[in-house]
């Protein structure tokens, strides 16, 4: 299959890559660009482990073709911290032991940040429905909800 050249922006940096026309963005990020923070848990949009944002919207990168992101702006988990300065959500996940194995964590952090950017003060119910597309099999979600709410509170008062 002939590859196609794509120019895009990832975490604020201009990036060019080539990919096959049927290659999911997730594979491009992981296999061609070394951005392995997004994980493949299912490849069919059912687990959310590959969540990134595409032009400000949260998407499963397994359900986007690499060729579609020409000219787009993408953010991934790798862009969440500023150097060594963790995002409040990242710090809250550590403080609250909101991860066990950690495989779902990048996707959940990207999803939670996308919510808080729109709604800085979600209810637990809003948060739980927002995160319904991110499966976590370790935690039972309890500490994830607590961590996001703690980060939200800190971000509101910062």
């Amino acid at each position: 299959m002939k590859t196609i050249q794509v120019a895009t922006t990832i975490n604020g940096d201009a990036v060019e890559f080539v990919c096959a026309p049927d290659e999911p963005l997730l594979d491009v990020l992981r296999n061609r660009l070394g951005l392995t923070g997004a994980k493949e848990g299912c490849g069919t949009g059912d687990c959310g482990a590959c969540t990134v944002t595409l032009d400000g919207r949260m998407v499963c990168s397994c359900l986007v073709l690499g060729v579609e992101v020409e000219g787009a702006k993408i953010t991934t988990i790798e862009g969440m911290a500023t150097g060594n300065q963790l995002h409040p959500l990242q710090q809250a996940f550590l403080d609250h032991a909101a991860l066990q194995c950690g495989i779902c964590t990048p996707g959940i952090l990207v999803a939670a940040k996308t919510l808080l950017d729109r709604n800085p003060n979600p209810t637990d119910t809003e948060l739980r429905y927002w995160l319904a597309g991110n499966l976590c099999r370790c935690t039972g979600y309890d500490k994830i909800i607590a961590a996001v709410q703690d980060a939200a509170q800190k971000m509101r008062t910062a």
Binding site: L35, G37, T76, I77, E78, L86, Q90, L109
Partner: peptide, 8 residues
């Protein structure tokens, strides 16, 4: 922890 919240 830090590696896991940074996707590293």
């Amino acid at each position: 922890g830090i590696d896991k919240v940074k996707g590293r």
